[in-house]
């Protein structure tokens, strides 16, 4: 059902038919064909010892096979959430499941099916790229020693680092380090890949490469959960988004639903803006405004062609008609607040 999913290009063709405006975990799991969701949390919270509530009762629902963008400004609790998902940080309250297995109790069984990149790459600087992967592979009790060599080479090849395999990690560029971290997540067959800011610190070429890699991995059927504060990045690769703001999940759904949230306006260019505004108000549209040579209003549920017909019928000379939708960035800022250090 989702194996053919290829990221942004086909985003619109995927329908999660029964996914309502308020996505619920069980609904999403139904949409994914009955398999347990890749990630499901309920009331997941973390209060650090200082008293700071880093994550405030979030209900994540990530269905299998999707590319889920986890958005939010810096400090909104994304990384803490990811650390809880991976069993690095104990939740203060709430439940969480990865691939249908309860965490952190099932960490030792389920995490071997999950690849991860948490808060940037971390490797042994004195070792080569290859030796670093061998080190992590040796720590995995489900990894077969006999196939290690082949799997390490395959993972390095996948991220384009095969030629630099014997180079010391400390000699790697930032982009290479980032790619090595992704390779570490690909040492075994993974059903879920959790990537925290995978393009952080990368140049445009590196960002493109990583995006391509994520699409490719998702095309292979692996669920990808990718956190980012870069909207453009999420827009290009994700089918679903969750938006965090100061520890709360303020939106969760498909990218289309996020777009749909923004109230679309209708904008009429005309020589008689006052007359046009009257007609718009007469049609029951909200927030009618009349300008120098244009009138606008919230479109609501009205079909724009109907409004146009009414305008023409009323004798308004319509020079142009547009239904601009708010950009994702506007929506994002609406959800997460404006400016620096929004909520202290």
């Amino acid at each position: 059902m989702s194996a053919g999913y290829r990221g942004a290009g086909q985003r619109d063709e995927i329908s999660f038919g029964n996914l309502g405006a308020e996505p619920l975990p069980d609904k999403i799991s139904q949409a994914a064909g009955g398999a347990s969701p890749a990630i499901a949390t309920s009331g997941l919270s973390k209060r650090f010892r200082g008293g700071q509530l880093a994550v405030d009762s979030i209900d994540l629902a990530v269905s299998r096979g999707c590319v889920y963008g986890f958005l939010g400004p810096n400090g909104s609790g994304k990384t803490t959430t990811i650390r809880m998902l991976l069993g690095l940080v104990q939740p203060t309250s709430g439940d969480q499941e990865l691939l249908g297995v309860s965490m952190p109790a099932g960490a030792n069984t389920v995490l071997s099916r999950v690849g991860s990149l948490v808060e940037g790459p971390a490797f042994y600087s004195q070792l080569s790229g290859k030796a670093n992967l061998a080190r992590y592979d040796a720590a995995d009790r489900t990894a077969d020693r006999r196939t290690a060599e082949a799997r390490i080479s395959a993972a390095l090849d996948r991220v384009g680092l095969l030629s630099a395999a014997r180079k010391h990690y400390r000699a790697y560029s930032l982009g290479m380090k980032q790619r090595l971290a992704i390779a570490a997540g690909l040492l075994g067959p993974r059903e879920l890949l959790i990537l925290d800011e995978p393009t952080n610190g990368l140049d445009p070429q590196g960002t493109r490469e990583v995006r391509g890699l994520i699409r490719e991995i998702a095309a292979g059927g692996t669920t990808v959960f990718v956190s980012s504060h870069l909207l453009a990045e999420v827009e290009q690769i994700c089918s679903h988004v969750g938006v965090m703001r100061t520890g709360k999940l303020v939106f969760q759904g498909t990218l289309e639903q996020l777009r749909g949230r923004g109230a679309t306006r209708i904008l009429v260019r005309t020589a008689q803006p006052a007359r046009a505004a009257e007609v718009l108000a007469g049609l029951g549209l909200q927030d009618v405004q009349a300008g120098q040579d244009e009138a606008s209003a919230q479109l609501g549920e009205q079909p724009p062609e109907e409004v146009c017909a009414q305008l023409v019928h009323a004798g308004v000379p319509v020079a142009g008609l547009a239904t601009p939708r708010p950009s994702l960035e506007d929506l994002f800022v609406q959800l997460t607040g404006e400016g620096f250090d929004v909520d202290g």
């Binding site: 989702s2 077969d144 799997r151 395959a154 075994g188 292979g220 669920t223």
Partner: peptide
């Protein structure tokens, strides 16, 4: 649960193919 990863014929299968999942 192993469905997507095991049956995938995309690039992930190259990796999957190199070993049988021990789990």
């Amino acid at each position: 649960a192993s469905g997507p990863a095991a049956e995938a014929s995309g690039p992930a299968a190259d990796l999957t193919g190199t070993r049988l999942d021990p789990v």
